[in-house]
């Protein structure tokens, strides 16, 4: 499963990167969101998959999966959410002000 997950992460990374390299702002944001999924899955995979029950002591399992990566991912998800929100608003404000969402036209050497 880890191997499969590694490939999944790789593929998601690939697609995300491809999107980030696009010109349109929206695609870039979507790309970052895909990569964020990939990263979170990778952390989970790197913590080892399915070696026990859910990390809840109330359920009387004999062994538990590694809870630390889960905590890390949780933090990472939240932070990524915050950044995405800001980035989204930033890009739409920029679009409104600059008048284009094409990063190729947002170079900013000409009008200075």
């Amino acid at each position: 499963m880890e191997t499969l997950m590694s490939f999944l992460v790789g593929i998601l990374f690939m697609i995300g990167t491809y999107l980030i390299l696009a010109k349109g702002l929206l695609r870039i944001i979507l790309g970052t969101s895909i990569i964020s999924h990939a990263v979170h899955l990778l952390i989970l995979t790197m913590g080892g998959l399915k070696t026990g029950g859910p990390p809840l002591l109330g359920l009387k399992n004999t062994s538990y999966t590694d809870a630390l990566p889960q905590a890390l991912i949780l933090t990472a998800i939240v932070i990524n959410f915050a950044v995405t929100a800001l980035f989204l608003v930033l890009s739409y404000r920029a679009y409104k002000l600059v008048g284009t969402d094409d990063m190729g036209q947002m170079r900013g050497n000409a009008d200075e």
Binding site: I20, L25, I28, T32, N80, V83, F87, A94, V98, M103
Partner: peptide, 15 residues
């Protein structure tokens, strides 16, 4: 705004 976008994107990637 224009420069922030670039800055933010680069830093998102690095994160």
């Amino acid at each position: 705004l224009r420069e922030s976008i670039k800055y933010v994107l680069v830093n998102i990637i690095s994160s």
